[in-house]
Design a protein around this nucleic acid. Structure first.
Lengths: 250, 250
DNA sequence: CGAACCCTTGACAGAAATCAACTAAGGTGG
DNA sequence: CCACCTTAGTTGATTTCTGTCAAGGGTTCG
């Protein structure tokens, strides 16, 4: 692992307050590994052996039942995932696969648990991280239950734009079919939902979204800090703290 | 507070491992209060001032947006709620109202935070509790995104039955309109969904549900431990540890 | 007894999934 | 370089599902 990556992990809220020796122990117990795109990291139902820290690439967390599948969230560097399952020593509720070539640190769950038992500061950070994850999922549930597909998409577009500092135009960070799944609709329906958003000031050109009338879009989306933010990192596709190295396109 | 109630709280996973003096401090800092039915305890968006512990009655947590409203979960004695917001010192994401005459202990959030900073065992229990809450919401999201309304209802019926030891018949613990909202549909739609479940071995008589063909119901619901359980207490309407005093009807 | 309220039912409209066909772009191999 | 294949995305036609509106039955409670 490069020193800069180590520093990035250390800077994460989950790790920044812990003792230096605890941090060392975690990373020394962990394995750094690279994976090709489209590789299954684990499947739901397996025992949670490792806390995963993504330092390069992109990972999809998805759930399946019967023949159906749904994207639950997408993780970008530098971010951690699957913390709760490790803590509870319980089976994963979601599956994970890489979307790009990715590099991960995998910390064995027993080491993780040992460290936050011995380092109160890390225990505090874990509490905070979990509370944040919990709230992120509650928000996702709220948008699913309270908004129509069209409204969810409108809110998503608005939030992405605000993540880019309120830019009127941005490029979708993921494929449309995955976005559709994340927002709880089919790919066909997403395509049509984008069409209806023409009336609400949103134009689409391939992967690029252009907001032509922000007021109209706000009226449609009715963004709400108790669902959409204000902390953009708390929920959504591409949720976690982004790497300092900002690539314009994915 | 009666001693027996104190003992019940102490027996909760969240409180059972902490030091005695920490537990005393929490309860001494807290207020015990009774509320009539249908009373709003707090509204989403307010600052999270208190951890709530329900010792008698029933409380609904619900979310709203624009003119819409949706039941997120229902809390029964003895259970806690709103832990995550207290930890993060953030606004409530959900509103709460009593469904019956209820008695609550309300622990000021600053005391809560002080105690788990000073009592590592309580910090551990908090981590565990939060991880469990997180997984409960993920499960709820999964059922919303992966199953149709009919399948969600079938799974709910099956789970309720299994909570009663696999009884072929049970009484709904909440009003149907609330169940509908919890399951992500309208009351009218729930009514129709029950009708279609006649083909899957479920009969309805008022608040009483009768499973006439369990195999057929299982085929429809395709229950999955990664969504529906196995720990029934982790999610769902009437989720938390039930009071020892079992009333047959609510 | 009357007034709410819950639940149900029917009729309808809107939303969304499904199925199928078609386009466009990118990659592969001849 | 081109023919071919695969895949993402779109579009249309159709069906299914779901929400909405309206009305009526039953219950509870004042």
């Amino acid at each position: 692992m490069r020193e800069s990556q180590r520093a990035e992990i250390r800077a994460l809220p989950l790790f920044r307050d812990m003792r230096a020796e605890s941090f060392d122990r975690l990373l020394q117990a962990g394995y750094v590994q690279s994976f090709p795109p489209q590789l299954d990291l684990f499947e739901q139902g397996e025992a949670a052996d490792f806390l995963h820290i993504l330092i390069e690439g992109m990972v999809e967390l998805y759930a399946s039942w019967q023949a159906r599948e749904s994207t639950m969230t997408i993780v970008r560097p530098v971010g951690t995932f699957i913390l709760a399952a490790c803590i509870r020593d319980a089976p994963y509720l979601m599956s994970a696969r890489t979307l790009e070539k990715s590099r991960l640190v995998m910390v064995p769950a027993p080491d993780l648990r040992a460290v936050f038992r011995s380092d109160p500061a890390f225990a505090m950070s874990t509490i905070d991280e979990l509370a944040q994850c919990y709230r992120a999922v509650v928000r996702h549930s709220k948008t699913l239950k309270l908004r129509t597909a069209r409204e969810r998409l409108a809110a998503y577009v608005l939030r992405q734009s605000e993540r880019d500092g309120g830019a009127a135009s941005f490029v979708l960070p993921v494929e449309k079919r995955m976005l559709a799944s994340y927002l709880g609709m089919t790919a066909e329906n997403l395509s049509r939902a984008f069409k209806t958003l023409l009336d609400d000031g949103v134009k689409v050109d391939g992967n690029r979204i252009i907001i032509t009338d922000r007021a109209a879009l706000v009226a449609r989306a009715a963004p709400d800090p108790l669902i959409d933010g204000p902390d953009a990192s708390e929920s959504g596709v591409v949720p976690l703290r982004r790497a300092a190295t900002g690539r314009p396109e994915s």
